[in-house]
Amino acid sequence: MTSELLERALVEEATKKSGLIWVRGAGAPAARALWHVWHEGAACVVGDGPGEQPLPGLADGATAEITVRSKDKGGRLVAWSAKAVELAPGSEAWEAAVAELKGKRLNAPDGEAMPGRWARECRVLRLEPTGATSDLPDGSLAEAPLPTPATTRQPIPAALPRLLLKKRRAKR
């Protein structure tokens, strides 16, 4: 019983303090980083709408594996199992979760109209711990990035070194 309480406390504290959790829903090929809030004993997430995070493999009643990272070092702290519960828009539980989520949502395009958009176009889920924690793997779980046409590596402009040297000479 004591170890169960300690595991539950570890899950709650680690998840509360972490800004991101890695969630792998049933049938999802890989875990995704999701922003969340801890509210009334569960991690609450919003997504699957325009401009919001995708929630692949997370359906009402489905199970998910959550890995929580350390906020300061970024290493894995705990992995736990959860049951996803979709909250009905306008319900008391939905209103309470959205009030918490709204305060943590960064760079929202619609400000105060955000809860209405979430009710119309998104899903709000509670990821409720089932009580089972998993052993953390020994090796890295790093995966190759998904293919994308985006690029960050390009040759620097030929004049850039001269421009940088001029600024350094001017400061002396």
Rank of each mutant, 00 (worst) to 15 (best):
residue 1 M to R: 07
residue 2 T to K: 12
residue 4 E to G: 14
residue 11 V to G: 08
residue 11 V to H: 02
residue 12 E to I: 12
residue 14 A to H: 07
residue 14 A to L: 02
residue 14 A to T: 01
residue 16 K to L: 11
residue 16 K to D: 06
residue 16 K to F: 09
residue 16 K to W: 11
residue 20 L to C: 09
residue 22 W to T: 07
residue 23 V to H: 09
residue 24 R to M: 13
residue 26 A to D: 04
residue 27 G to L: 01
residue 31 A to D: 12
residue 32 R to W: 13
residue 32 R to C: 14
residue 35 W to F: 15
residue 36 H to W: 08
residue 36 H to G: 00
residue 38 W to C: 00
residue 38 W to P: 01
residue 39 H to N: 08
residue 40 E to D: 09
residue 42 A to E: 06
residue 43 A to Q: 04
residue 47 G to F: 09
residue 48 D to H: 08
residue 49 G to V: 01
residue 55 L to A: 04
residue 57 G to A: 01
residue 57 G to C: 00
residue 58 L to Y: 04
residue 59 A to Y: 11
residue 62 A to G: 05
residue 68 V to P: 01
residue 71 K to Y: 15
residue 73 K to I: 10
residue 75 G to F: 12
residue 81 S to W: 10
residue 83 K to G: 03
residue 86 E to N: 00
residue 87 L to S: 00
residue 95 E to G: 10
residue 100 E to Y: 10
residue 103 G to M: 11
residue 103 G to K: 11
residue 103 G to H: 06
residue 103 G to L: 10
residue 104 K to R: 12
residue 104 K to P: 10
residue 104 K to G: 06
residue 105 R to Q: 14
residue 112 E to L: 12
residue 112 E to F: 10
residue 115 P to S: 09
residue 116 G to E: 14
residue 117 R to W: 13
residue 123 R to W: 03
residue 123 R to C: 00
residue 126 R to N: 03
residue 129 P to C: 07
residue 131 G to W: 00
residue 131 G to D: 06
residue 133 T to G: 11
residue 133 T to M: 05
residue 134 S to M: 12
residue 136 L to C: 02
residue 138 D to Y: 10
residue 138 D to I: 10
residue 140 S to M: 07
residue 142 A to M: 10
residue 144 A to P: 04
residue 145 P to F: 03
residue 149 P to L: 08
residue 149 P to M: 07
residue 150 A to T: 15
residue 150 A to G: 09
residue 153 R to E: 08
residue 156 I to L: 15
residue 156 I to G: 15
residue 162 R to N: 14
residue 164 L to K: 04
residue 165 L to D: 13
residue 166 K to N: 14
residue 167 K to A: 15
residue 167 K to T: 14
residue 167 K to D: 14
residue 170 A to F: 10
residue 170 A to P: 06
residue 171 K to R: 07
residue 172 R to S: 13
residue 172 R to Y: 15
